[in-house]
Amino acid sequence: MLGLMKGLGYTMKNLTRKKVTYDYPNKPLPLPDRFRGIQKFYPEKCIVCNQCVNICPTDCIQLTGKKHPDPTKRGKLIDTYDINFEICILCDLCTEVCPTESIVMTNNFELAEYSRDELFKNLEWLDENDENIRKVNKV
């Protein structure tokens, strides 16, 4: 009986403590800057080096480039850029290898959709995903 009473004492003590729960859907969840959420893509920065495609462990990134319209300039421009969020695990490796930081993480993590097809995000969508962008991307 003594042990039971002691335990009850602990419970009573905790009644006066501050609440620790989040009011999540009503208030946004406080997240640290480093948090890895859905990527933001800057098409103008991309040099079509394909490093993100090569490093992706789940092969969820697909991109195509086109020749620079100005024939005097070398290099390529990005044409299409898709990330399949059905299989993306937000591991951060694509942003880690990107030499121009044209793909960065944001703090947005809500990805629920009514159809799987909607999880296929293209260049425009990723470009417009420009809220809560991570400030520091490289150490």
Binding site: R34, F35, R36, V139
Partner: peptide
């Protein structure tokens, strides 16, 4: 989460060190 950027699936360590320094 503050250290690695994820709550459970940290992907924090790298061969030869770690990805992030302590904030």
């Amino acid at each position: 989460n503050e250290l690695s950027g994820a709550r459970l699936t940290f992907n924090y360590m790298r061969v030869g060190g770690v990805k992030w320094d302590a904030p």
